[in-house]
Amino acid sequence: MTTTPAFTEETLDIAGTSLQLRRGGSGEPLLILHGELGVPDWLQAHELLAKHYSVYVPSLPGFGTSSFPDWLMSVRDLSTWVSWFVRAHGLSTPLNVIGFSLGGWIAAELATANSHIFSKMVLVGAGGIKPREGEIWDYFLHSAKEAFQQSFHDHESAEYLKYYGKDWTPDEADQVETNREAAIRYLWRPYMHSITLPDLLPAIATPTLLVWGRQDGIVPISSCELYKEGIPGARAAVLEECGHMPEMEKPEEFTKTVLEFLGG
């Protein structure tokens, strides 16, 4: 299947930042919160979702070409920033959100504090909870290349090869480093989890779908179970033969799963 990407990319002065925003599609807004490795492009999954929604993919502060104000020191700060962005950009609420890894953690934090902002929430390989079994893979004891290898189960999948399984240009390598510099500030300690979030999950009133790759090599699947136990009514969908980035590794299966939940 081929699609012709139709999206715009702009830089907005908004919510205290100079923000890189990719947007495509039409209809109700769908907010995408990317993971700790950033988002390299308008992805196939974005394009598939944009057939049904007006899809917003901001590069979170510090990532991509977005600026990185000093005051952003934690994931909770970041969740406050997301709330600011949604209001400042005039997105109608409640709106649907998909959060990937770090982005899932941000969405969960926000949903604990504000039950009116999201209509439905999809958390994909979400960080934020210390797994019951295993450990969250340490990005900072490994190289950037290794991080992408670890994030994918299938190293022949199209978007892995397109963005990561190749030699980077100096600009691409520079962007990867920029994203690592942002990630380290948000995630350093406690490493990629919150001490208090588990106790706050029962405060979430937003219908929630958890999506995990069975072979997630970054956030162990036992974190999915903890999210499911914590968030009232949460459902889980586990994708087989899939790693930490289902949206890039299995875009069609991932999108189908998500659309069923959002549209149902």
Binding site: F140, A144, R185
Partner: peptide, 13 residues
């Protein structure tokens, strides 16, 4: 290991 000797943000670019 370079990423251990110089983790992201330790030194300016």
């Amino acid at each position: 290991i370079p990423w251990i000797m110089s983790p992201p943000g330790l030194n300016s670019r």
